[in-house]
Amino acid sequence: MLDPVFILAPPRSFTSLVCACVGQHPELLGLPELNLFQADKMEDFWSGREPDGQLRSPFWAVMRHGMLRTVAQFYSGEQTIQSVNMAERWIKTRRDRTSGEVYRELAEHVAPLRIVEKSPGYLRSRVNLDRLIATFPNARFIHLLRHPRGQCESLMSAKGGPALLFMLGSVDRSGEEPVLDPQILWHDANAQILDFLEDLPAERSIQVRGEAFLNDMDATLARICDWLGIRGDAPAIEAMKHPEDSPFSQVGPINARLGNDINFLNAPALRPGGVTVPSLDGPLDWRPDGASFHPRVAEMAREFGYE
């Protein structure tokens, strides 16, 4: 069994699309957001509560959908109300196991296919990432990048995006009035990813700019195949260009509808047309004071190759 490939990025960085595309390679298997490593024990995963009793997220019930859909698909071959009920029992019978043990069980079940997964929630704490690497010491990581202006504007306009930013503390409180500022999340999530990946051998991770992925897909997919040591022939690349073929690229049954961004689930196919890369200069639309990017955000973005 090969350790999975994880995609690390702040929310609204094309993670759903990239994960589904890469996961369509004949040697790989893209999964919805499992969120397993946000908990140590499966009991805590199911309850959504931290060891101190605090609820991990007000949306935790929804954040289990990806795991329910995955178990239903793996062990029933379908995602229906009945198979999701079965998946719930499957998870509950493993309540005393660690999330890592259960993740390994899933990975062994689908071997020789190699899992590809992204759960932005893993970035909420370094503990989650340490749990992940302890379970899969040979995991590989795609650090997915997006221009801060594009990512921030997307997050501000997404349904529930501003509330998510608030809950994650992406608020500039340095002035008299608080200002919701997504660049804080963009910076801190990427800083955490860089710190984590620097502790690993260089060949275990790759940086991919989301805009380049969409604008020059064949070349970017070939680069990812080469890095993973998997076949990069035309049929394999073609398969990766059909994220809609995944059984997880659609809305699930009523008792586990999500597991991914609802906008992606409603329209998972690639859309023709390029993505424009915005500029780092100029005022930010979401700042009432007309401020531009924080110097450290601009510096990090330039390190990633943005201008």
Partner: peptide, 21 residues
């Protein structure tokens, strides 16, 4: 570790990782 922006701009936020308010 890289210095995070949140503790600098929003002291109310938890310092560790990309946590929560």
């Amino acid at each position: 570790r890289r210095a995070l922006l949140a503790p600098e701009l929003n002291p109310a936020r938890a310092v560790e990782g990309v946590a929560r308010m």
